[in-house]
């Protein structure tokens, strides 16, 4: 690892540490309870960010992430309503398979139709949104308490909420198979220079389809996490995650032109994006400004990255 890469890998966690320290300064009673709500709030977003990161690294963009999360959310909440814990775990496997299926649909549509990613996933997102409404028309459903406790509990002490552990395990579950095998190489190659990758024998379309597939699995985990943290299924709850997942990866240093970025950045960015509205409440500002701040952050970060590239070119 070069020193530059080392600095980049540590920058986001350092930023989070500073943000937490500042929060503690501004609000001295910030403690275990707030860490718990931070973890719960950031959990689905972290998985949405992971899903978006995988697709963007492969050279695409996924505007259907919110709808995919909504489907996993309503599917799990409607099936688990009267199930016990063991059955719920089996249903989880089913939801994961469904998520992989949705991701595969995206991948196949993008690979075969020649419609640009933005338009294709905007449209599949619309379709999936209809699917979520078909499964559950209005917020409802539920899951057994033991299942909710998987994310909402505090089995390892008040300072290490389950939500944080589920977040790390969930992201690792989709990222490890990519990073530790040849798949990762293919996805990064397809994203950084599709033509060069094609000429080196990489099946770019297959690589990008696989990226969408893994992204679908991440969304399924995110949707079930949403069920665990909210206790219900809501067909329209996903909308927030499409835009915020883009915010998280942009802030987390994933290049929108593909082929560059990792997973630590987006996940830490998800925590930061959840912390920001909490801080607004502590400071007595309307937390709805959180959305404004998110929008501004996306734009500012990309501008800064642009300036940085420009400045390096000039040097």
């Amino acid at each position: 690892m070069t020193s530059g890469a080392f600095v980049r890998a540590l920058a986001m966690p350092a930023l989070l540490t500073v943000a937490l320290a500042l929060t503690r300064l501004a609000h001295p009673t910030f403690g275990a309870f707030d860490i718990q709500s931070l973890a719960l709030g950031a959990l689905p977003l972290a998985l949405a960010a992971a899903a978006q990161a995988i697709v963007v690294i492969s050279g695409g963009i996924d505007l259907s992430i919110g709808s995919q999360i909504a489907i996993a959310n309503v599917l799990s909440a409607s099936l688990m309503q009267h199930a016990d814990f063991r059955q719920s775990l089996m249903i989880s496997v089913l939801v994961l398979a469904a998520g992989a299926g949705l991701g595969l649909v995206n991948g196949v549509v993008v690979a075969l139709s020649r419609i640009p990613d933005v338009v294709a996933t905007l449209t599949t997102g619309f379709i999936f949104g209809g699917g979520a409404l078909l499964i559950l028309e209005r917020p409802g459903g539920g899951a057994p308490a033991a299942y909710l406790n998987l994310a909402a509990g505090q089995d390892f002490g008040p300072w290490l909420p389950n939500g944080l552990i589920v977040m790390i395990l969930g992201v690792a579950a989709v990222w490890a198979p990519i990073r530790l095998t040849r798949i990762g190489l293919l996805i990064y190659a397809a994203g950084s220079d599709p033509i060069a990758a094609f000429r080196s024998g990489v099946d770019v379309r297959a690589a990008r389809t696989i990226a969408y597939l893994f992204s679908g699995i991440a969304c399924a985990i995110g949707g079930m996490a949403l069920t665990m943290t909210t206790g219900i299924g809501a067909p329209l709850a996903g909308a927030y995650y499409t835009l915020s997942s883009v915010a998280a990866i942009v802030i987390g240093g994933v290049s929108l032109t593909g082929g560059r970025g990792g997973m630590v950045g987006p996940v830490v960015a998800a925590l930061l994006l959840t912390l920001a509205p909490m801080d607004l409440v502590f400071l007595g500002i309307d937390p709805n400004y959180g959305q404004v701040i998110q929008g501004a952050l996306i734009v500012l970060v990309v501008m800064a990255a642009g300036f940085y590239a420009y400045w390096r070119e000039r040097k």
């Binding site: 883009v246 400004y289 701040i293 998110q294 929008g295 996306i298 734009v299």
Partner: peptide
Amino acid sequence: VQPLVMTLGTGLMTGG
């Protein structure tokens, strides 16, 4: 700034 990101950002801000 890429148009997609720029307009996504301003859309979020406007909505907020």
